[in-house]
Amino acid sequence: MAVESRDIAFDLKTIERDRIIAKAQRYLPEEPLTVTGEQCERSGGGPHDYYSEGDYWWPNPEDPKGPYIRRDGETNPDLFYAHRYAMVRLSEIVGTFASAYFLTADASYAARGIAHLRAWFADPETRMNTNLLYGQAIKGLHSGRSIGIIDTLHLTEVALGAKLLSGSRAMDADTDSGIRNWFRSYLDWIQTHPYGQTERVHPNNHGVCWSMQAAAFAHLLGDEDVLKWVRNQFRSVYLDEMMDDRGAFPAELARTKPYGYSLFVIDAMAGVAQIASTPDDDLWEFGLEDGRGMLKGVEFIAPYIADKYAWPFGEDILYWDDWPVRHPSLLLGALRFGRSDWLASWSNLEPDPMPFEVQRNLPLRHPLIWS
């Protein structure tokens, strides 16, 4: 799972060092904030249950007190976001501290990252329950939905960071065991609960995102059965059924934010390929007989990352001006396929976007821990 370069002179450590160390210094005084820190009166769960609400659901102007109605692509700013903010914050902090520890071997960075991991996954007073029964609820319709599992996509880098930090002297046995037990329980839940079983075969970015997080959890736990399932799904469904002969994903092009969703799905595909591949089963190198594969997918999107105004499928209805950023698919594709032009494009983009809408659709932001 190494971040490898093919015939390109490239030093990721040097490129990332100043950014990562500056962020790590800024985050040192930050205290853990878990789902127990704030609750929503609309949640059907308890203080340890994660809760969120469907992004594109709004009050019905014809029935203001009735069930919400859907407005695709239009995020409702008045929903409950506290747990989402906390989880994205966790991903950002753990990803940063794990990267800083990787660069410096400074145990103080590891200790701070581990403090956040302990609070979320090992401390009985503050840890999150190992389910997503109340994710992406809709007022008046659903107390939770299968597609809510996409929210824990931001635990991908948390799991990768936890694996890296487990080798630090700052990691104690009880915390390490607690973290692994939590991810074991949650990985089992997303495989066995009807929500998880529905989400993992969802025929668009949701299915890919299930596989990316499941692969990261399985990588932490050494669960080869899950990783094998993900690799098979990547080949037989994500490429064979979801990608077209251009390298595009028609289900994402049909959305009201086709550019953002196209970026999102190819980044998730890159994450799956990066985490789940083995030397003998390399998803980056795999291609169908008609040429569809990761190379085709990145070749489709890369010109529009370099020049989004050439995008021929219409502007997104929201957040058009906030894309693109440093997309993992562009970096990993550049290194795996020897494309210095893609690498130059990636290097000129924003590594730490501020809008939350962009952050929540960019779960991979710390490339030093992707190996």
Rank of each mutant, 00 (worst) to 15 (best):
D78L: 07
E299W: 07
K139I: 12
R180M: 08
A215R: 03
F97K: 07
L165N: 07
A215S: 13
A248T: 02
E241G: 06
D18C: 05
Y50F: 15
Y319H: 15
Y101G: 07
A137M: 02
I138W: 00
C209E: 02
L155M: 13
A9W: 03
E315L: 02
E157S: 03
P194A: 10
G293E: 01
R6A: 15
F97I: 07
P77D: 07
Y56R: 05
F102N: 10
D176G: 15
V3H: 05
D151G: 03
Y238D: 13
H366C: 04
S277M: 04
P194K: 10
D225E: 15
A276D: 10
P279T: 05
H366P: 01
D244L: 08
E224Q: 14
P363D: 00
A306H: 12
V3F: 01
R169T: 15
S52P: 03
L331M: 04
T130S: 15
D321W: 12
R145W: 09
D106L: 08
N60V: 11
M294R: 06
R71C: 05
A24P: 08
P203Q: 09
H116G: 09
I8N: 05
W57H: 05
Q25M: 05
E299H: 11
L12C: 09
A22C: 06
F121L: 13
N181M: 14
A344S: 13
D49E: 06
V35D: 00
S277T: 14
N348Y: 03
W320G: 01
A344E: 12
A344C: 03
D7E: 14
W182N: 02
A276W: 09
S236L: 11
H193K: 10
G297T: 08
E31M: 14
G293F: 09
H48P: 03
L117Q: 05
H219M: 08
L239I: 09
T192Q: 12
K163D: 11
F264S: 00
E357T: 12
Y134C: 09
D316Q: 04
L221H: 04
N129I: 10
D322P: 07
L132D: 00
D267G: 09
P351C: 06
A137P: 08
D123S: 00
P194S: 11
W57C: 02
K139G: 11
K13H: 14
T75L: 15
N205M: 00
E62H: 15
A110D: 04
A122L: 03
I305F: 02
